Simulated assay, not measured.
Amino acid sequence: MKNTVAKVVLGLGMAGVLVGCGAEETAKDSFDQIKEKGTLVVGLDDTFAPMGFRDSDGEIVGFDIDLAKEVGERLDLDVEFQPIDWALKETELTNGNIDLIWNGYTITDERKKQVDFSSPYLENSQIIIVLEDSEIQTKEDLSGKVIAAQQSSSAVDAINADESTIIEEFANEEVVLYPSNNDVFNDLASERSDAIVVDETLGRYYMKQNEDISYRVLEDNFGEEEYAVGMRKEDDKLTEAINQALEEMKTDGTYDKIYAKWFAE
């Protein structure tokens, strides 16, 4: 999103049942089972502010959290939030450990091979952040520099997809990967990396919350994109229900109220 500060546990027994049942079980649309159970399990990276993260009291909050809770109310379902290893998000979904991936989840061609997406609900871009006094001014200045990003993130996908193939010019011809975006920012703050690539929604929010460190966002970026909810490919009824709820929220103003709460600036 341009010029804005814009990311429960199924019992082990149930997980075992799902694995034991194999493809036959997971190949069915699960919406009826979800309604019967009364609970929708959302997988997320609980460090992805302001989309889904833990506040000072340890509660999971965020823009996506509020959206998911509102969708749950409209579908008459409780929503439980399950922190997961973001690198394994599609595996968690396919295995039935979660019902949705909903946490600043970017639509990409590669992900479309594994999941179905809801209608897009938020625009985003992959921005390049450096420290204020860095000599880096453009994307071309990243040549020979150490660049960091979150592993299995859309930031990495965007870098790899960049037509300039600039990754070949990075130090060691690679992106330094970390499990969370907090680690990525810490790497830049400690000057172990020269620049980082992150979602604009997260990046601008993080910088606003950490104004003791002087960051700078380059005018260049690694592309525009859209966020959506990820579901299993066979869950057509669930996809339709979520799309309808999101559309109703945009029509009646609920979406705008939630947006204003998190992205007022």
Score class of each variant (00 low, 15 high):
residue 1 M to P: 00
residue 3 N to S: 15
residue 3 N to E: 12
residue 8 V to L: 11
residue 15 A to H: 07
residue 15 A to D: 08
residue 19 V to D: 15
residue 22 G to L: 05
residue 24 E to I: 11
residue 27 A to F: 08
residue 27 A to V: 09
residue 28 K to W: 03
residue 28 K to A: 11
residue 29 D to Y: 03
residue 30 S to F: 01
residue 30 S to A: 14
residue 31 F to Q: 00
residue 32 D to Q: 14
residue 36 E to M: 09
residue 39 T to K: 14
residue 41 V to S: 03
residue 42 V to W: 01
residue 46 D to V: 05
residue 46 D to C: 06
residue 55 D to V: 12
residue 66 D to N: 11
residue 70 E to D: 15
residue 73 E to T: 08
residue 75 L to N: 01
residue 77 L to I: 09
residue 79 V to Y: 00
residue 80 E to L: 13
residue 82 Q to N: 13
residue 83 P to Y: 10
residue 83 P to F: 05
residue 85 D to Y: 11
residue 92 E to H: 03
residue 92 E to M: 12
residue 93 L to S: 00
residue 95 N to S: 13
residue 96 G to H: 04
residue 98 I to E: 04
residue 99 D to E: 10
residue 101 I to T: 06
residue 105 Y to M: 02
residue 109 D to S: 14
residue 114 Q to E: 11
residue 116 D to A: 15
residue 116 D to R: 04
residue 116 D to F: 07
residue 119 S to C: 00
residue 119 S to T: 11
residue 119 S to F: 06
residue 119 S to V: 09
residue 122 L to E: 02
residue 124 N to G: 04
residue 128 I to R: 00
residue 131 L to E: 06
residue 132 E to C: 05
residue 135 E to K: 10
residue 135 E to C: 06
residue 136 I to Y: 01
residue 141 D to L: 08
residue 141 D to N: 12
residue 141 D to A: 13
residue 142 L to Y: 05
residue 147 I to A: 04
residue 151 Q to G: 15
residue 156 V to N: 03
residue 158 A to R: 02
residue 158 A to T: 00
residue 159 I to G: 00
residue 166 I to V: 01
residue 167 I to K: 13
residue 167 I to S: 01
residue 172 N to K: 09
residue 172 N to P: 00
residue 174 E to D: 09
residue 174 E to P: 00
residue 174 E to M: 06
residue 174 E to F: 02
residue 178 Y to M: 06
residue 178 Y to L: 10
residue 181 N to L: 05
residue 181 N to F: 07
residue 186 N to L: 11
residue 187 D to Y: 10
residue 188 L to M: 07
residue 190 S to M: 14
residue 192 R to F: 08
residue 195 A to S: 11
residue 198 V to D: 01
residue 204 R to S: 14
residue 205 Y to W: 14
residue 206 Y to H: 13
residue 209 Q to G: 02
residue 209 Q to M: 10
residue 211 E to T: 13
residue 212 D to G: 09
residue 216 R to P: 01
residue 218 L to V: 04
residue 219 E to C: 05
residue 221 N to G: 13
residue 221 N to L: 13
residue 222 F to K: 02
residue 224 E to D: 12
residue 225 E to D: 12
residue 225 E to P: 02
residue 230 G to W: 02
residue 232 R to M: 11
residue 233 K to I: 06
residue 234 E to A: 13
residue 236 D to K: 14
residue 237 K to A: 14
residue 237 K to E: 13
residue 239 T to V: 12
residue 240 E to K: 15
residue 240 E to V: 02
residue 242 I to N: 04
residue 242 I to G: 03
residue 244 Q to V: 06
residue 244 Q to G: 03
residue 247 E to Y: 07
residue 248 E to V: 15
residue 248 E to M: 09
residue 253 G to I: 07
residue 255 Y to S: 03
residue 255 Y to D: 02
residue 257 K to Q: 14
residue 257 K to T: 08
residue 258 I to S: 08
residue 261 K to G: 07
residue 262 W to E: 02
